[in-house]
């Protein structure tokens, strides 16, 4: 299935939860904010949220800034 992640299209094998996607990308879920189709996801729901082809995700983290 095709997912748009941070503006780029990528192919993944379904079924895939948000938690599995982060694992797959080697990201620590406690440090990443996930927005799925413009809705911010509660981290408690990462394990049960199944992704579908065409979903658009923003994966955001804190960086240095003034």
């Amino acid at each position: 299935m095709q997912l748009k992640i941070n503006g780029d299209d990528r192919i993944f094998t379904a079924p895939l939860t948000v938690e599995q996607l982060l694992l797959n990308l080697e990201l620590k879920s406690e440090h990443v904010v996930v927005e799925l189709n413009r809705v911010i996801l509660d981290p408690h729901h990462f394990t049960e949220t199944l992704l579908s082809s065409g979903d658009s995700l923003e994966l955001i983290q804190f960086v240095g800034g003034g």
Binding site: I5, N6, G7, L25, E26, L27, V32, V33, E58, L59, I60, Q61, F62, V63, G64, G65, G66
Partner: peptide, 12 residues
């Protein structure tokens, strides 16, 4: 202060 930016998923 801190900022929020997209994760660079090819180079986290």
């Amino acid at each position: 202060t801190v900022a929020l930016r997209r994760v660079d998923i090819d180079n986290p």
